[in-house]
Design a protein around this nucleic acid. Structure first.
Lengths: 102, 102
DNA sequence: TCAATATTTCAAGAATCGTTGTACTATTGC
DNA sequence: GCAATAGTACAACGATTCTTGAAATATTGA
């Protein structure tokens, strides 16, 4: 996890639409959801959702697999775990006594 | 930590300048740095840095205290810890077996 | 093959964000 | 008080990002 990837992931989580999408996919792990189910669930126009799904996929935050005419999206949980580890390191490395245990 | 605050914090960390500022302040915790020291350290124009510091302060990611004519900025480590906890919950609550321990 | 369905791509405009220079406020030391 | 210093506020512009409708692509089922 380098700074540039972290920045990209934060950017990916910095829109409420994308955060909602990610949370929905976490809730529906590990089976994931197809694009139409996400759109219905979050009441989003297909084009707008597609725009955000593409951004999140490019960032590596979610994965997509084709299922016939459907696209199934899944949260990339290991990337999220790596981000948590990165943040913990950012937060605690220098001065553990002033952060981790409060 | 609600979704809106999380979104705001991610937005705050989604620029490489702001991420660099935060990392610098973590490295210099708990004493913090005054604005001029940050500007020198990151080679940023004062106005641009001020713009980002204001955004980060509004988001609650950093704190500021006045010291005479200086403004001293410190990383808000407990907010960062709360964000890590939020992300961990987002990542692991639904299906711990598929995330936390890999 | 053909119509229906699922999703993406593209283009255009709206909205937001980032950067910079200039001006302003506040504090310090003489 | 006055000049110097630290930092912020404001305004303008450029650059991104967001949103939407229309068109394109691909798959399915009849």
């Amino acid at each position: 996890m380098d700074n540039q990837l972290a920045t990209t992931l934060f950017e990916s989580l910095s829109s409420s639409i994308r955060l909602d999408v990610f949370r929905l996919l976490v809730k529906n792990a590990p089976s994931g959801l197809v694009a139409g189910e996400i759109a219905t669930s979050l009441a989003l126009p297909a084009t707008n959702l597609s725009f955000h799904l593409k951004a999140m996929t490019n960032a590596g935050l979610i994965n997509v697999t084709q299922e016939g005419r459907y696209q199934r999206y899944r949260a990339n949980l290991s990337v999220m775990q790596a981000l948590v580890d990165y943040l913990t390191a950012e937060c605690c490395t220098a001065h553990p006594e002033s952060c981790c245990d409060n």
